[in-house]
Design a protein around this nucleic acid. Sequence first.
DNA 1: GTGAAAGCGCTAACAC
DNA 2: GTGTTAGCGCTTTCAC
Lengths: 332, 332
Amino acid sequence: MRKAEGPTIIDVARACGVAASTVSRAFSHPGRVNAATAERIKQTAAEMGYRPNPIAKALPSGRTLMLALVVPDVTNPFFSEMVRGAERHAAAAGYTLVLADTEESPETETTHLDRLSHIVDGIVIGTPRLPDANLAAFADRFPLVLVNRESGSVPCIVIDTPGGMIQAAEHLASLGHRKVAYLSGPRASWADRSRWRALQTAGRRLGITMTRLGPFAPTVAGGTAAAETVVVDGASAVIAFNDLLAIGTMRRLLARGLRIPGDVSVLGCDDVFGADFCHPALTTLAAPVQNAGRLAVDLLLGILGHTAARGSRSRVALPTHLVVRDSTGVPG
Amino acid sequence: MRKAEGPTIIDVARACGVAASTVSRAFSHPGRVNAATAERIKQTAAEMGYRPNPIAKALPSGRTLMLALVVPDVTNPFFSEMVRGAERHAAAAGYTLVLADTEESPETETTHLDRLSHIVDGIVIGTPRLPDANLAAFADRFPLVLVNRESGSVPCIVIDTPGGMIQAAEHLASLGHRKVAYLSGPRASWADRSRWRALQTAGRRLGITMTRLGPFAPTVAGGTAAAETVVVDGASAVIAFNDLLAIGTMRRLLARGLRIPGDVSVLGCDDVFGADFCHPALTTLAAPVQNAGRLAVDLLLGILGHTAARGSRSRVALPTHLVVRDSTGVPG
DNA sequence: GTGAAAGCGCTAACAC
DNA sequence: GTGTTAGCGCTTTCAC
């Protein structure tokens, strides 16, 4: 913004021969003002090119009509999808979206949360790395919605990957795998813990030996280290924390001369951009990420008192489904 | 934000036995206040947990310390990279980044620009779809920086893809290709026009027959249509507007039983996420996108009068380089 | 060097 | 219904 911009509410008021407050009402509470004058005001306001100043509006009302989305890594397609879902829904509701990237650091996460809380009306935070205590404390004094993380009674949108993990394990079991490795992601990640827990349970039930390898960086680059560990471990199939890690692992495995799925079957999580055109095409547990972003904003708007959703359940679980492609097959 | 939050400047002033204006100065213009009192003020402010209110600060100053980045598609990895570069640099300079997705629509672009101009101090817009006239008019009354688009004297960061196109054409010529097709992107795109122009020139010089196919959607999905056209056209090599289109084209070509690069060589632009692990790995013209995002913010900050860069050239061209992988080879 | 006071553009009681 | 009058929290002359 720049000083001395367009006309203010006062200029419009003067032009219409009414008080500034009437102009304000004409816009904010039409109905509390004579229909005819309201129309006349809007008319001249439009002619004068009057545009309400969001900042000035925010000061007394305490609401900026801005929402923030905090993610650990914008370049990760998983989060790009989330950003899109959130941005779309926010824009549709008349909100502006502020984006913050924590680059996987809990400290940056705190800093951003702190700064943003004075600027926006509410925050959606994707796969937070902060401890439960901090999250709870923050949510206590500020509208907050978590995505892909459960923490006390803080409202959240979770993707039921743990549930899907069972399906994934069954898929591998049916192909004949008896020794499966889980390539874990960030230790601070709630998603990682819950996935591993689900996998352990499924393994026991299906008679599969489950081992947990890692942690590895949840990126394509992280797959290099993961692949080495896989070779040593000797599992006939691996389930990666996410698709990026799975893709990176495949690349390295292939480079080391192993066949996929012949020697090792690889299964990812999320079905992000790239999972279908990598080589071999990745079998993965598809997550409705964009939808998660959208619903998170929806939940937040509900908390802010905009939607009928007010007071409804504050934990939404989204189903996943297994997409079988070419990276999994019978062992040997 | 929420009403009745923490302590205000007045509370701090009272606690220190000074005037509110002194507290204000202690933060905004230290030096214009006694060093000792300034220290005492900051001390107690910290103790009381005082946090300056950005909104209140923005009203009189007219500066919100927010910047906006407007892109046509956040889920496109090309723009995710740009977002990251911009976000990082903005955050480092103490600015908050607002993100807007136009979803390839010029109308939405206008709407966003309009809305944002009242909220942020400056705007970076990636590969705008708006006509030059609109862009110029807007830039005239508001700090604006273009990325990947040149328009009159509006400050911009351009990636020298046209220059790189020559290199790409030479690469194909040296492999023996004599008939090359350009798979074009959005017609409203400046990048598309300049790439095609460079290609025509290079084609003439190298004795290559260049044909322009399309336009196609600059996405993986857009590649399906492109591939069909390529088959009909009969070119031995294609250069796609971007990597996504190239990847989509390869998928479809492969599905139709053609060999790459045997039957058709495919060359992309940008070297985005996925270009290295798609199949076959894509030969592409690498663009320093993240850097472009960073520099765009830098240029904008310069315009806002923050950096020494003030008054320096307002058009920065970034070099590209060809990354040869497996999707190009000798024809036949 | 510091205090008092007048806004920034808009909203929200509270009168009339 | 509409005008008047305070602010929202901070910055910024302008005195002293």
